[in-house]
C-alpha cells in the first residue's frame, strides 16, 4: 500500500462504510483539532467514542470518555489517532487484540509511522496516515469548497438540499488527487527527510 497518495475512491469508501469510530487522544478543549473533528464526525452520524485516560468520568458532547480501546463495549469500525508517530506502535498492538478487529486505522495530519502501518495491514486492516477525516469528508462532499479549498471533485448534478447548512453527499465524481501533485510530493519529501 502506497501511503504517499490515496485515491479519492478509496477514502470515500472508508468514510461511507465505517460507523463506529473510536478517537484516541480526544480533547475536551474546544480549540484542539481533536475536539472539533470529534464533534464534526458525530454531527455527520458517526458513532463516536472518545478515548483519553485523563478524562475518564467526564464526557465529550454527551459521549463518555473511556481509558482504552479494550474498555469499549461494541465493535469498532475505525480508530482515529491523535497521537504523534512515536506513540502509534503500542496502539496498533492494542488494536490487534480486539475481536473483531477494527476495519480501519486512521492517523491524523502530520502523523505517519510506516512500520506500524505494515503491522496493521498484515492483519487485514486498512491504514490511512497524515490525513484528517474531517478535511477529507468536507473535501469529498465539497462542503470545504466554501473555504476556497480545491475539493478535486466535479459534479453536474444538483447538490442535495443542505441540512443544517451543510452539503453532505459524498457521491460526487472524483478528480482523484490529480492537480495537487506538488503538495503530495512535498508531504512525501518531508516524510523522507524525517
Amino acid at each position: 500500500m502506497n501511503h504517499d497518495h490515496y485515491n479519492d475512491t478509496w477514502i470515500r469508501e472508508i468514510l461511507n462504510t465505517v460507523k463506529t469510530v473510536a478517537m484516541i487522544g480526544a480533547s475536551p478543549q474546544n480549540v484542539r483539532p481533536s475536539y472539533f473533528v470529534f464533534k464534526y464526525l458525530a454531527e455527520r452520524g458517526y458513532d463516536m467514542i472518545p478515548i483519553n485516560p485523563g478524562q475518564v468520568g467526564k464526557s465529550l458532547i454527551g459521549k463518555s470518555f473511556v481509558a482504552s480501546l479494550r474498555e469499549i463495549d461494541r465493535p469498532i469500525d475505525m480508530i482515529d489517532i491523535f497521537r504523534n508517530a512515536d506513540h502509534i506502535m503500542p496502539i496498533i498492538d492494542d488494536a490487534l487484540t480486539l475481536n473483531p478487529l477494527p476495519k480501519v486505522i486512521w492517523m491524523q495530519l502530520g502523523v505517519r509511522n510506516d512500520e506500524a502501518a505494515k503491522k496493521a495491514e498484515a492483519a487485514g486492516i486498512k491504514v490511512v496516515m497524515n490525513r484528517c477525516p474531517k478535511i477529507e469528508y468536507g473535501r469529498l462532499s465539497s462542503e470545504i469548497s466554501w473555504m476556497g479549498v480545491n475539493s478535486r471533485t466535479l459534479s453536474s448534478k444538483r447538490a442535495p438540499i443542505p441540512t443544517q447548512g451543510m452539503r453532505l453527499s459524498l457521491n460526487r465524481a472524483s478528480v482523484g488527487g490529480g492537480g495537487t501533485d506538488a503538495a503530495d510530493r512535498a508531504a512525501k519529501n518531508k516524510n523522507d527527510a524525517v
Binding site: 485515491n7 479519492d8 475512491t9 465539497s142 469548497s145 480545491n150 475539493s151 466535479l154 459534479s155 453536474s156 448534478k157 444538483r158 447538490a159 442535495p160 438540499i161 443542505p162 452539503r167 465524481a173 472524483s174 478528480v175 482523484g176 488527487g177 490529480g178 492537480g179
Partner: peptide
Amino acid sequence: MNDRIPGFATLAVHAGAQPDPTTGA
C-alpha cells in the same frame, strides 16, 4: 469516473461549480 483526471479546459468550465442545491440553477 473513478479518479479520472480531467483536462484543463474541463476544469476551467466546471471546477468549483455545481448546480445550486435550492434552485437547480
